[in-house]
């Protein structure tokens, strides 16, 4: 399909991206880029975010292509990788023209690319669910995470349900956003800077106890640091209570 010499500018939300897809289908065109970065020299068209149109696109992806494809689109969007928007458009087009049979077309580059990206994002989600560590500040819980992808929306329901009666905040230092759960209400807000308070004596006590447990549970006769790094990649260590001192 021809690339029309125009770029779409959207507001970086998922609904906004859905509107870009709507536009591309309606205009039967392929933009040179889809981005929310306004520092561009290319001619651009501002795509407004209309919730109604977004719903129509989402509905039609789910109804005609299936929930799995919808999930892949959503996960790929959360990767926030440069260029993912245009790939998503290409992927959605491909799926519509192949009646949703994406999994039988794994050898098509755009399909395998989207599957891989979605898998990486979902793996990152699970890593964060595993390795996130809260610190207690007089009854409130605070965690700092550094995920490669923007997984806060994916982990929200898990932590909301599990710690429903707690107040907690999860700060994503790579994406400058925080998941906040206060008085049983949850939302994700943009945060430019977050200063972590000093640990309380009580908090230090439990960190020490945990580190003690962690060091003691190892069977020294089976020591295998490579295996540990495979399962718990080093890039997470700086925010993992029991390993942060070994992070250089």
């Amino acid at each position: 399909m021809a690339r029309d010499n125009i770029m779409y500018l959207y507001d970086s939300t998922f609904d906004g991206l859905m509107n870009c897809i709507f536009e591309a289908f309606e205009q039967k065109e392929t933009p040179v880029d889809i981005s929310y970065d306004t520092h561009t020299l290319l001619p651009y068209r501002q795509i407004l975010t209309d919730t109604d149109k977004a719903h129509r696109v989402k509905y039609s992806i789910k109804a005609k292509l299936g929930k799995d494809i919808y999930r892949i689109v959503y996960l790929a969007y959360l990767s926030r990788e440069k260029g993912c928007e245009l790939d998503i458009l290409e992927f959605v087009r491909f799926c519509f023209s192949h009646k949703g049979n994406a999994s039988e077309n794994m050898n098509t580059p755009i399909v395998s690319k989207m599957f891989c990206l979605a898998k990486s994002v979902s793996r990152e989600q699970h890593h964060i669910m595993e390795f996130l560590r809260f610190n207690d500040y007089n009854g409130n819980l605070i965690a700092v995470i550094n995920p490669e992808y923007f997984v806060l929306p994916l982990i929200a329901s898990h932590f909301e349900n599990r710690f429903y009666n707690e107040n907690f905040l999860i700060f994503d230092e790579n994406h400058f956003a925080a998941l906040v759960h206060i008085e049983k209400r949850t939302e994700i807000i943009p945060v430019d800077e977050f200063i972590v308070p000093e640990f309380t004596e009580e908090e230090k006590k439990f960190q020490t106890l945990w580190k003690l447990f962690y060091d003691t549970i190892e069977i020294k006769q089976r020591r295998n640091y490579n295996l540990r790094r495979t399962h718990l990649p080093k890039r997470f260590w700086k925010n993992v209570t029991e390993l942060k001192d070994e992070y250089i």
Binding site: H126, M129, E130, F131, Y214, D215, I217, E218, I219, K220, R222, R223, N224, Y225, N226, L227, R228, T230, H231, L232, V240, E242, L243
Partner: peptide
């Protein structure tokens, strides 16, 4: 869910 891995690589 595995929350950590000890020095022997076990969950």
């Amino acid at each position: 869910i595995c929350h950590s891995f000890s020095g022997d690589g076990r969950c």
